[in-house]
């Protein structure tokens, strides 16, 4: 049984189909990059994974649980913008990852202190402990996205969804964010879905690269058909296939 199962998912807005017959299975700990042209349903697919929208047909299950009706703590998300709360300082943004699940969205007493300590540990890990008391608006774009990722992870989700998380960053910051994300992932082994416009980014970070495109195209009515997963690349080992021996071969391997 795979960790994330997308079964025969269709999504249409009114009469206009967006996604058709999407079938994907993902194992625990895989990093899935999702690429494709504008308007080919990558973001729709992410919203479906997020349970922000319900598919018109088909189902998405995570870890064998029943399909979610609305976004919940099993899915963490980072958008291109607006992923942190501007009225809370950096530490409180991380604490929110634990506190928001409580009935009034706050922690009190020793629980609160413990959460703040865990938040400080998280800030240490994402390299933001020196700005713990600052408001997000004073941070650079890269720092804000690091904070958003840290906040999402503080809630301990099953899968992490990234919607063009580095799209608004300059190239240098983007590269350092790649290192940051790979390092973080090496530590916690999270299952990640990342939508990106940047092919090289998708191949660099992902274990698999899903390409969304329209397999059928009616030139007189471009909206007649929806998109689906047209390629499913193995992007491990720099995209060179068959580098990982999957089965036990009983021959000596180089160490």
């Amino acid at each position: 049984m795979s960790f994330v199962e997308v079964e025969n998912v269709f999504q249409s807005y009114g009469a206009r189909p967006i996604l058709e017959r999407v079938n994907v299975t993902v194992n625990r700990g895989e990093f899935i990059s999702i690429v494709g042209a504008s308007g080919c349903g990558k973001s729709t697919f992410l919203r479906l994974l997020l349970a922000q929208e319900q598919p018109t047909r088909g189902s998405i299950t995570i870890d064998g649980r029943p399909p979610a009706q609305e976004p919940d703590r099993t899915r963490g998300v980072v958008f291109q913008r607006y992923s942190v709360f501007p009225h809370m300082n950096v530490r409180d943004n991380i604490v929110a990852g634990e506190a928001f699940a409580r009935s009034f969205g706050r922690l009190f007493g020793s629980e609160r202190r413990a959460a703040q300590e865990r938040a400080d540990a998280m800030l240490e890990r994402i390299g933001l402990n020196h700005v713990a008391d600052a408001y997000p608006a004073t941070l650079s774009g890269g720092m804000q996205q690091r904070l958003a990722i840290g906040q999402a992870l503080a809630a301990k989700p099953l899968i992490l969804l990234l919607d063009e998380p580095f799209g608004a960053l300059d190239p240098g910051t983007r590269l350092s964010m790649h290192d940051f994300l790979m390092h973080l992932r090496g530590e916690i082994g999270m299952t990640v879905f990342m939508v990106t416009h940047d092919l090289s980014e998708g191949f660099k970070l992902g274990d698999r690269v899903l390409v969304f495109d329209k397999p059928r195209w009616d030139p007189t009515d471009p909206d007649a058909y929806g998109a689906t997963v047209t390629y499913d690349f193995d992007a491990r080992n720099r995209g060179i296939p068959f580098q990982t021996i999957m089965e036990e071969t009983h021959v000596l391997r180089p160490v």
């Binding site: 997020l50 922000q52 609305e70 976004p71 919940d72 703590r73 899915r75 963490g76 998300v77 958008f79 607006y82 992923s83 942190v84 709360f85 929110a96 990852g97 506190a99 928001f100 699940a101 409580r102 009935s103 009034f104 969205g105 706050r106 958003a148 906040q151 999402a152 809630a155 989700p157």
Partner: peptide, 16 residues
């Protein structure tokens, strides 16, 4: 949506 994924109820989203 971000608040929802952190487990916030409607009340928490309103208050926080």
């Amino acid at each position: 949506v971000k608040a929802e994924t952190l487990g916030a109820s409607s009340l928490v989203i309103a208050l926080r």
